[in-house]
Design a protein around this nucleic acid. Structure first.
Length: 462
DNA sequence: GGAACTCGCCAC
DNA sequence: AAACGTGGCGAGTTCC
């Protein structure tokens, strides 16, 4: 449990309630015609995919066992795959049952191509049922009014409801296009979305005072560094593989480690991200192609890593140096903070919120970053709101996604607003939150006039 | 017939 | 010994 114990914390939330509520009241325009249209189209498409699956070899087998076949029934699917067809179990759910999630289906589709129909179905189903339908259900006179609450999330971030505006698809391009196309600015307006870059890591720099982390965050590239170390890449990363392998370093290792994961659980995703097999020996022709005639498998073998077991050992060593050498100050902070919590029974964040109650080690070391990261955005949101009222902008704040604020802007005011955002988010905030001891970086996406949220934006970096 | 649970998936 | 942090939500299923 966290409580806004200090007067500063209470004031931040008191102002936040009002500014967030104003954004809710203002709301965002919904392209209702588009939503109704795409909803119809998707219903038809989903019906067709269902028909296709039922007619396929795999679908016939399914229906023989379950005459009332339901594509969405993971129980039915799992029973057929793992009990009737004896397919290998790739991973287990939290409750210990064989998993049939998208990653598993992707692997099993190598042997049963019909499974691809199910994956395709699920992607479109989520876009339609979780998002488009919610928009149509929640809209009033062509506007949606997502709410933002400050009293629900235990780290005192914000939550969003009716609809939840903090989970709109971004990574899957098909879902992104379908869903974000529905959100449009007011007539003649354009969206501005300004987000802090790596705000949680920057909070970690300020909280832990780790000099190496601070250096890497401001001047270096830790994700790239870790990718090079994990895959022993040396100069391969310079030859056009930077983006993908950096992604693997970031999402397969650095982020999980910061959240409290450990090497053994990182290995499967690191293997998957490099297209390597999940067990056994690393064959010379396995994995991502690094250059003509050289695959990741062969490359790693040359470096003495001949099997998944070898790779596991290597990742364990990388983790050791990550915490015991590279970020040893951060590591010590974690130990000290856990000790402090155990002694006092509570912790207090940089923004004045008290964390108390029964917490795991990972919770103890994550809460001091997660809350203040959002509070930095909220403080800026409040100030932007104050200025928009004082100066009677036509434009206005309409939403917030943890480290990002979204405005519906009149083009005549756009440049002026960008100046204001730059001032508030990179300068003003440092005077208000003295504990922020690293520079802050902001990316502001400016969308085309009358362009939906799915359109390509012009990015301005502060 | 509804509450509670489970799984999977969307975001940061 | 521990073992990814915070949520919302839809669908299927089970229990009462």
């Amino acid at each position: 449990m966290i409580l806004p114990k200090t007067s500063k914390a209470r004031k931040l939330f008191h102002n936040g309630l009002q500014s967030l509520n104003r954004a809710t009241i203002k709301g965002m325009r919904l392209d209702v015609g588009y939503c109704k249209n795409i909803n119809k189209k998707l219903n038809k498409k989903l019906a067709n995919l269902e028909k296709e699956l039922k007619g396929s070899k795999f679908g016939k087998r399914w229906r023989k066992i379950y005459p009332n076949m339901k594509i969405k029934s993971d129980d039915q699917l799992s029973n057929i795959l793992f009990n009737k067809m004896n397919m290998p179990i790739i991973k287990f759910t939290d409750k210990g049952n064989p998993s049939v999630d998208s990653g598993v289906l992707e692997i099993l589709a190598r042997g049963i191509p019909d499974l691809k129909i199910i994956s395709k179905y699920k992607v479109l189903y989520v876009a339609n049922n979780t998002f488009i339908k919610a928009f149509l259900r929640e809209q009033v006179d062509g506007y949606i009014h997502p709410e933002f609450a400050l009293h629900v999330i235990k780290t005192f971030r914000s939550g969003s409801y009716g609809p939840n505006f903090q989970q709109n698809p971004k990574r899957n391009p098909i879902q992104k296009e379908i869903v974000r196309r529905a959100i449009i600015p007011r007539k003649g307006h354009q969206f501005i979305a300004a987000d802090f870059g790596g705000i949680e890591v920057r909070c970690a720099c300020c909280v832990t005072k780790d000099k190496q982390l601070t250096h890497d965050t401001i001047h270096g590239d830790m994700h790239r560094d870790m990718a090079i170390e994990i895959y022993k890449l040396d100069d391969f990363i310079k030859k056009g593989y930077e983006k993908e392998l950096r992604f693997a370093g970031k999402n397969g290792f650095v982020f999980p480690e910061f959240y409290g994961d450990f090497w053994k659980r990182c290995v499967p995703s690191l293997l998957k991200l490099a297209n390597l097999p999940l067990k056994g020996t690393l064959k010379p022709k396995s994995g991502k192609k690094l250059m003509t005639g050289l695959y990741m498998g062969k490359h790693l073998r040359k470096k003495g890593i001949r099997s998944v077991k070898d790779f596991e050992k290597h990742v364990q060593a990388v983790e050791y140096s990550f915490w015991k050498e590279r970020y040893k100050t951060y590591d010590k902070w974690k130990k000290d903070t856990i000790q402090e919590y155990k002694k006092k029974g509570y912790l207090i964040t940089k923004t004045g919120f008290v964390c108390q109650g029964i917490m795991s080690n990972n919770e103890i070391t994550n809460y001091p970053m997660q809350g203040p990261a959002f509070h930095t955005l909220l403080k800026c949101f409040n100030e932007t709101d104050r200025r928009q009222q004082k100066n009677k902008w036509i434009s206005g704040l309409v939403a917030q996604i943890h480290d990002e604020m979204i405005l519906d802007a009149h083009p005549n005011e756009t440049d002026y607003i960008l100046d204001i955002l730059k001032e508030i988010m990179t300068n003003w905030i440092l005077k208000k939150f003295k504990w922020i001891t690293v520079p802050l970086e902001v990316e502001a996406d400016v969308y085309p006039v009358d362009g939906s949220w799915a359109e390509e934006a012009k990015t301005v970096v502060f």
